[in-house]
Amino acid sequence: MKWRDTLKKLLFLLIALCLAGTFFAIRSVHADWAYSFVVYERKAYIISDNRVEPEQVDSIIGKVTKYSDHEGTYSGNFSNHFPKGTKYYNIKGVNISEAIAIKLSDGSYIKAVYQGEYPGGASFEWANILWSIAGLFMLVVVTFIVIKKRK
């Protein structure tokens, strides 16, 4: 009878630790970024101080789909500086692996210089949470099966 009480306490402790881990894993942290940037197709571009003349701007290639000033990695065309909807453009004669133009709210353009591949993926993804819940559920089921078989 004593081993059942011990098993129940261990199970309770395990569940409490899993819930606490989930809470701390999904909390967001406000951060001051080292620099302003945009992400276009998993490529990170640092915002420069260099303006791009309108006649140098070519076609639109994308736009910001997610803005956040909270530390983390995000999927999609993300920015830590520009709001959702801000447009990205090709610069005539410049490969997008070197730089792109960003349209500012006043209609002017600024150059964003390619920094490297962006890791992508959200720090908070529903798939990860669902797998955690499924794993916890399976652990509880297996524990109850073991307890029932020992009766």
Rank of each mutant, 00 (worst) to 15 (best):
Y40M: 01
H30P: 05
F24L: 06
V142Q: 14
K43P: 03
K149T: 11
L104F: 01
Y74E: 06
G62H: 01
A112Q: 03
F78I: 03
Y67C: 03
K87Q: 07
I129N: 13
V113R: 15
L139G: 09
G85C: 00
S36P: 08
F82L: 05
L7P: 03
C18N: 13
F124T: 12
I147W: 10
L14I: 10
L10H: 10
I100V: 09
T6Y: 00
F12L: 14
P119Q: 14
F12S: 15
L19P: 04
D58G: 14
S105L: 00
E98L: 07
D69G: 07
I110Q: 12
L136A: 12
L139S: 07
V140Q: 11
A122F: 06
A134C: 12
L10V: 02
K8Q: 07
E53I: 04
S108T: 14
W126P: 12
L13M: 11
I100K: 10
I47P: 05
E41S: 10
T143S: 15
W126K: 14
E71I: 02
G107R: 07
P54T: 07
D5G: 09
F78C: 02
W126E: 13
I61Y: 05
G93Q: 08
L11H: 11
T6N: 04
N80R: 06
L19W: 07
K151Q: 10
L14A: 14
Y118G: 13
